[in-house]
Amino acid sequence: MTRNLLITGALAVLLQVGGMVAGLTLSPPEQHMSDLVRIMFVHVPVAWAAMATFTVTLVAAIGWLSTRRWGWDHLLDASLEVGVVLGVLLSVQGSVWGYPTWGTWWTWDPRLTSVAVMVLSFLGILALRAFVDDPDKRASWSAAASILAWGSVPFTYFCVKVMNSLHQKQTPWGAMAPEMLRVLLLNTGTVTILTLWMLVARYRLARVELQRELDT
């Protein structure tokens, strides 16, 4: 890693730690779920970051298929892996929040099912990439699959609006106490910065890996 990448990474981590400390201390408890509301401050930003990252995957896939520039494939590679990490984390957080709130760790409601399909689809594409030897085919196949898999992202976002689900709908502005909203926005910022940093670091790794692969 370059010096600049290390310094910005350390800053991103510090910001994230600050956001989480704020999540644990600055917000009041919720009047029914009490301190459980603090899980929202890490869950909602990770949900946003995962879906945004998979949308970066879509852009990279279209970019590769239309230009055949390797930079798009590096971005595809990076966003797939970062998105899957965020997606798995999202499910764990949701499960830990769901048990004391809903009364279950997991249920096949539309939102949870859709997130499972989304994360598993992109995980499958990541696996696909690992066993295709030809870099060109690897890039094209995973790009085509990513465009298909991205359909799960808007479905995940909108399903709670139009289908009966256990998961609540998006909270409209004003339905959240301002002291909580502030902490949520702070954490949305820190998670976004950290995600961008992870994408940059993983992009550089993808570039080095492809170079090494072509050299041998």
Binding site: G9, L24, L36, H43, Q93, W97, M198
Partner: peptide, 27 residues
């Protein structure tokens, strides 16, 4: 009202720290 929230809060924040931390280390 939920009366014992903290173990779950710590579990969620712990999982977040572990997952992101482990991924950063792997990078």
């Amino acid at each position: 009202v939920v009366t014992d929230p903290w173990p779950y809060v710590w579990a969620a924040y712990g999982a977040t720290t572990l997952a992101l931390g482990a991924y950063l280390v792997s990078l």
